[in-house]
Design a protein around this nucleic acid. Structure first.
Ligand code: DCP
Ligand code: MG
Ligand code: MG
Length: 1213
DNA sequence: ATCCTCCCCTAC
DNA sequence: TAAGGTAGGGGAGGAT
């Protein structure tokens, strides 16, 4: 297709250009030549331009350029000049460099030709003109007024999550994919394709099969829609023909694409491009049916299969093609096979598929694009270079707008061909990093060493709910629901997790309250916070109550105003799989693998060890996470177990024995090295000889015979094969390590672990996973969903309100459960108070289940099946009750202690003022790090205190030493550092980095720093480093920009100013991990950082956005310096902090008041009661004066603002 | 050297 | 009315 025909900028075209230049310039000889600035350029002007067409033309010619009136031959033009291109032109010019007129104007102004790369026309800029993302959605604004409507349509109802996921196409895609992976995995494990086992193919053939505009094709396959086949059709939620709908189009047929409409576009935009567009509703069930048929076909026609998506898969057909070749030597048998597959698909589904064929995944995928719609294309190795050369980088898989931009701006190349001819792999690595650089460079050269992947275990499970909105303390209920959801997904996937990450999307300060897209999340900052997650007895968990507690703790820790939330996500990782080796998503997902309670430990370790046979590290960690419940709430029938069976029915042998299948399931990837033989411009790695693999049993055997059996409990990490090590569940790894270092007797439990270790070292490379497919196609329209928000977000520190994060909990005596019962504050619900998140953790199973002989850490590290085994064993022998913890006792303790999940705090009228430290006062029991003294304890931010409390608590409950690596480390470190603590505070002795290394102006006192447990130090340090890093990054960008982009800078600043409004320039305390999510369809935001005002130097800890933390810092400051008097710089920081608070934070007044009251009270306590004290009276008076002066100073500056804004002074009463 | 954590980015 | 979910590769940089 012409789209792919090479466009060369070689010698011939320059010749032509020059020739034409003469002609053109002759025709325009009326212009006076002024410079040779544009010599060698052949420019075409299209669409609207700001200096008019004629003005530009004159400038071009006057400065030595060639003006091309018509675009007869695209290869004649070097650049197109435009301010705005129609979507059609965007497509037409997609292989031509398009710049804005500013390029020319500025070059003329400066007198030299500026790099065109700095003036690339952002073709997505055509979108905002069709949809304004900055204006709030009026419809939503109105509807949200109604309480009833909100009750029915926001996160308040239990149904909400269900119905949300029920209608979410993206959730459908994600969950179905998870299911498909399982399907494929089990199908391939249970099938022995005997007719293929002996075949050793000489070449690799990968087919990439992808349905054409899948959702639309599916719908149009129904008789009732047959009449639409030649119309432009799209799938979207909104069925009304209202052209103002902000619904997204999931899929768009090829007719509609002629109008420039793309998958993912907003309906309102699409209508502007094509008013006749017909939109049809989703039919998830139908898609699922088709998918099942599709995969049945796939499974019947491949050696190996990688599920890519609902409508798409990668098939390794090397053996099949080889076999075909034995009968029919000459034909392109891959092509023939593709025809068969396409035919089968069409006859079974009435939908069209396209097939791309290549010797590796990359080429196959590229071929598919070319094949579409409804075709086949075999991209041969020798054609690859030519095929690739004219394309932009984003046709490559894994390359999106960011990567593309980096390449263009930093390497000064705009096409793959240019890169290949002028850049080395090192050049690319310099821009993209080591691995990505190598990958990208190889892709550009047609090389792709990825193997099909089909046996990875998931690594995380998450449920995210974008879109608003938690208006009040329904937030809490929503958290419970989301926790339950995640818990369900974990169980469905047969895993438990050890770590939880909370992700919050918070409306960016400058974004409209109501997003432009109906109920969309709008432009947001993203905040992540994570913490270890554990069962009551320790160890990984899937319990919704535990998840909820943890999530809620994290939420309060982030201290975000619930009203500003636009999305919440919970992700669980550090998964331990107990389901027998493969994740198994989906409630209804077939039980392909029987869980074997009796599975021996040998087996348990043998499996992963065997997996490493292939030398793929990926093998050992199949799937790290579980996601999306594959719950198919769309009412879609789960992919039935028969599918797998049916699919395999064509295979010669179906192996039904689960046991066997488990033991024989070893290969994770088909080994399909792709020799890419054509001569390469750069030396490239020799294609590895294609190992002759045998599937299934053969591998099993070979492993068994080659493996050494090592019984080892203590020398694992060093002696055993690395990959084996990796294959062990991480919690166990941790234990083994602990074992080694602490020489604990932990493993001397009932479990002795004989390990089968494959001595053969796993070669580590090649495991690139890389993401799949089409970046480019939807890419222009697809917005960047995340980008460096920090740039525009001045002060996240100030985001928090005083109020929201502080839950009130009580522990009712009645409750037999461990968990404290949170109760919503009884105060009249002022708006603020209504934001108080109460805590409502669901009931938990009682504990006391622990087989008590085992070291708890070991116990919880064990996979469930082993635990079960042990339990039953124990029950049988019913013997020795080792000192084990009594359940009742544990409960008692728990009830007496501060609740785990919610920091006890305060009375919400800003209790912090009247009794700031009370709730978190030094714990009476020995919960705090024993070595740290009370002052240090008090000095810690409340979150950290809470964390430590939590750790200690669970530790106590477990009746053992701290097991979590963090708490263990904390305990150890505390001792160590304590011992080392020199008398002099200023002496840097800690082995750990001092905060000043990251943040020179850190306010953390060194002594305090040293007192911190190492885990805490680590956390703080991490945070500080992040800040530092970001500051540096900004600085760097600023320089980069300054160097190269005189113009773009201004442009972006202007843009950002628009966006940022009043906030630009006031960037104190932004959290580093905050990311703005740009609206879709907005051009990628670049160089955001320059706009960002210098980060304030407010003390590191002040960056904690939670008010409790801020108060803690304040208190710390006061406590530490009360004797010495305040430093001017610190006073200044406080001043700045309050200033920003007041000007940027809606809750700033309250915060300021709280802080000042705390301060005032402290001064009163320390000084007013008479600086009578004993000896140092004079200096004390002096110090008191300084403190009071400082206070007045700050108060006055606060009042300046307050008076200015509200006309009166801030009352501290 | 390799791990771990917190991101960013990408894909459908 | 819309339903912008979710898993995974990899980089940066500190910890081990
Ligand atoms: N932004 C997107 C992209 C895709 N999809 C859904 C609808 C698509 O039909 C399906 C498959 O995605 P493809 O990328 O394969 O796109 P299509 O199949 O629609 O078109 P084609 O493959 O012909 O380009 O995924 C979606 O909901 N939103
Ligand atoms: Mg498709
Ligand atoms: Mg697809």
């Amino acid at each position: 297709m012409s789209e792919y025909s090479a466009i060369k900028f070689g010698d011939i075209s320059s010749y032509m250009r020059n020739k034409q230049a003469k002609l053109v310039n002759q025709n325009n000889s009326s212009f006076n030549k002024k410079s040779d600035l544009f010599n060698g350029l052949a420019l075409h002007i299209n669409g609207y331009t700001n200096p008019s067409f004629n003005q530009l033309r004159q400038l071009i010619i006057e400065n030595g350029g060639v003006f091309l009136h018509y675009l007869n031959n695209k290869s004649d033009v070097t650049h197109i000049i435009s301010n705005n291109l129609t979507p059609r032109k965007v497509i037409e010019f997609k292989h031509i460099k398009c710049c804005t007129p500013d390029w020319l104007l500025q070059s003329i102004q400066i007198g030299r030709l500026l790099p065109w790369q700095n003036f690339i026309l952002n073709t997505s800029q055509t979108q905002p003109s069709l949809f304004n993302y900055n204006s709030p959605n009026k419809q939503a604004e109105n509807l949200l007024q109604s309480d009833q409507w909100r009750r029915d349509n926001t996160a308040q109802s239990d149904q909400f999550l269900d119905s949300y996921y029920n209608n979410s196409r993206l959730h459908f895609l994600s969950s179905t994919k998870a299911t498909l992976k399982d399907l494929v995995q089990s199908a391939q494990q249970n099938v022995t394709k005997e007719h293929l086992t002996d075949i050793v193919p000489s070449r690799t053939y990968i087919l990439h099969v992808d349905m054409d505009s899948f959702f639309v094709s599916a719908s149009l396959s129904l008789p009732k829609h047959a009449h639409l086949v030649n119309s432009p059709v799209a799938i979207s939620h909104s069925t009304s023909q209202s052209s103002s709908s902000t619904s997204e189009l999931a899929s768009v047929n090829y007719k509609a694409r002629e109008f420039g409409i793309r998958n993912g576009m907003l309906k309102t935009v699409a209508y502007q491009l094509c008013p006749q567009l017909v939109t049809l509703p989703y039919d998830f069930q139908l898609y699922n049916q088709i998918t099942v048929k599709l995969y049945e076909i796939f499974l019947q026609h491949c050696d190996h299969l990688e599920a890519v998506s609902v409508d798409e898969a990668l098939l390794d057909v090397s053996k099949i093609v080889h076999k075909m070749g034995m009968a029919n030597g000459h034909a392109d048998n891959a092509y023939e096979l593709s025809k068969t597959i396409r035919h089968l698909i069409h006859s079974n589904t009435k939908c069209d598929a396209s097939v791309g064929i290549g010797s590796n995944i990359l080429l196959a995928k590229l071929a598919t694009r070319h094949a579409k719609p409804n075709g086949i294309y075999h991209l041969h190795d020798h054609q690859a270079a030519e095929f690739l050369a004219p394309h932009q980088f984003d046709i490559l898989p894994g390359v999106g707008s960011e990567t593309k931009r980096k390449l263009i701006t930093q390497l000064n190349v705009s096409t793959i061909g240019e890169l290949v001819s002028s850049k080395s792999m090192k050049d690319v690595q310099h821009v993209l990093g080591k691995k990505n650089g190598e990958t990208l460079w190889k892709y550009c050269n047609g090389i792709d060493e990825r193997l099909l992947s089909y046996d990875k275990k998931r690594q995380s499970v998450s449920a995210e709910y974008g879109i608003r909105f938690e208006n009040v303390n329904e937030t809490q209920k929503f958290f419970a629901n989301l926790s339950t959801e995640v818990s369900r997904r974990l169980k469905a996937a047969k895993c438990k997790g050890g770590h939880l990450t909370l992700k919050l999307m918070v409306r960016r300060k400058d974004a409209p309250k109501e997003a432009a897209k109906f109920l969309g999340h709008g432009v947001v900052d993203i905040f992540n916070k994570s913490a270890p997650l554990s069962a009551i007895g320790g160890g990984a968990t899937d319990d919704d109550g535990r998840i909820n507690e943890c999530a809620w703790r994290l939420f309060t820790g982030l201290g975000k105003d619930a009203r500003e939330l636009r999305g919440v996500g919970l992700q669980v990782n550090k998964l331990d799989h107990y389901g027998g080796g493969g994740g198994d998503d989906g409630e209804g997902a077939p039980a392909k693998r029987r869980e074997r309670d009796t599975e021996s430990i040998q087996d348990f370790f043998k499996k992963p060890a065997k997996r490493t046979k292939q030398g793929e590290q990926q093998a050992t960690s199949s799937r790290d996470s579980v996601s999306g419940a594959s719950t198919s709430r769309q009412g879609v029938a789960q992919i039935p177990p028969q599918a797998a069976r049916a699919a395999s029915s064509s295979a010669d042998v179906v192996d039904i024995s689960s046991d066997k299948s488990m033991d024989t399931s070893t290969t994770n990837k088909a080994v399909t090295k792709q020799p890419f033989k054509r001569p390469q411009p750069q030396p490239q790695p020799q294609p590895q000889p294609r190992p002759s693999i045998k599937i299934d049993d053969s591998i099993d055997t070979s492993v068994d015979t080659s493996a050494d059996s090592i019984t080892s409990t203590t020398s694992m990490p060093t002696q055993a094969d690395r990959s084996v090590w990796k294959a062990i569940p991480r919690s166990i790894r941790r234990e083994v390590l602990d074992e080694r270092t602490r020489v604990k007797n932990a493993l001397r439990t009932p479990f002795k672990v004989p390990m089968k270790v494959d001595k053969k070292s796993a070669e580590k490379k090649s495991a690139e996973k890389a993401s799949k497919e089409k970046v480019a196609r939807d890419g222009k329209q697809r917005a960047r969903r995340s980008n460096d928000a920090a740039a525009y977000t001045p002060s996240h520190l100030l985001d928090s309100s005083l109020e929201p994060a502080i839950p009130v909990t009580i522990t009712p005596p009645k409750r037999p459960r461990l968990r404290p019962v949170p109760v919503t504050p009884m105060q009249p619900p002022t708006p603020m108070q209504s934001m108080q998140p109460p805590l409502l953790p669901p009931p938990t199973p009682s504990l006391g289940l622990l087989p008590t002989q085992a070291d708890p850490s070991v116990w919880r590290a064990l996979p469930s099946d082993i635990r079960k085994e042990v339990l039953s064993e124990r029950e049988a022998s019913k013997s020795k009750g080792l000192p084990h913890q009594d359940e009742a006792q544990a409960e008692t303790e728990a009830q007496l202690s501060p609740p785990l999940s919610t920091p006890p705090q305060l009375n919400l009228n800003h209790p912090a003022i009247s009794a700031p430290a009370t709730p978190l006062a030094t714990p009476s029991i020995n919960l705090k790090p024993s070595q740290a003294d009370a002052d240090v304890w008090k000095a810690l931010p409340s979150t950290i205190r809470r964390e430590i409390l939590g750790e200690r608590m669970s530790e106590r409950m477990r009746g053992g030493p701290a097991q979590a690596s963090t708490s263990a480390a904390a305990a150890n470190e505390t001792e160590t550092s304590n011992a080392n603590t020199p008398a002099h505070p200023a002496m840097p002795t800690s082995a750990l980095p001092s905060p000043s290394q990251a943040i020179p102006n850190s306010q953390i006192d060194r002594t305090v720093w040293r007192e911190l447990p190492s885990s805490v130090r680590r956390n703080l340090f991490e945070e500080m480093s992040r800040e530092k890093k970001e500051r540096e990054r900004e600085e760097l960008k600023r320089q980069e920009v300054g160097r190269a982009k005189e113009k773009e800078k201004e442009k972006e600043q202007a843009q950002a100013k628009e966006r940022n409004g009043a906030n630009a320039g006031a960037g104190a305390g932004a959290r580093t991990n905050a990311n703005a999510i740009a609206p879709r369809y907005l051009p990628p935001i670049t160089h955001k950082s320059q706009l960002r005002a210098q980060r304030s130097k407010v003390a590191v800890l002040m960056r904690k956005s939670e008010i409790g933390d801020i108060l803690a810092v304040m208190e710390q400051w006061l406590d530490v310096y009360i004797e010495h008097g305040p430093h001017a710089s610190d006073i200044n920081r406080v001043k700045m902090y309050l200033h920003k608070s007041l000007t940027e934070d809606s809750e700033g007044m309250g915060k300021t008041r709280t802080l000042l009251r705390l301060w005032k009270r402290k001064l009163a306590e320390n000084f007013e009661d008479g600086f009578d004290s004993q000896n140092s009276q004079i200096s004390r008076v002096d110090v008191a004066g300084k403190w009071h002066q400082a206070f007045e100073d700050v108060k006055n500056s606060v009042d300046d603002i307050v008076i200015h804004r509200w006309g009166c002074r801030l009352s501290l009463r």
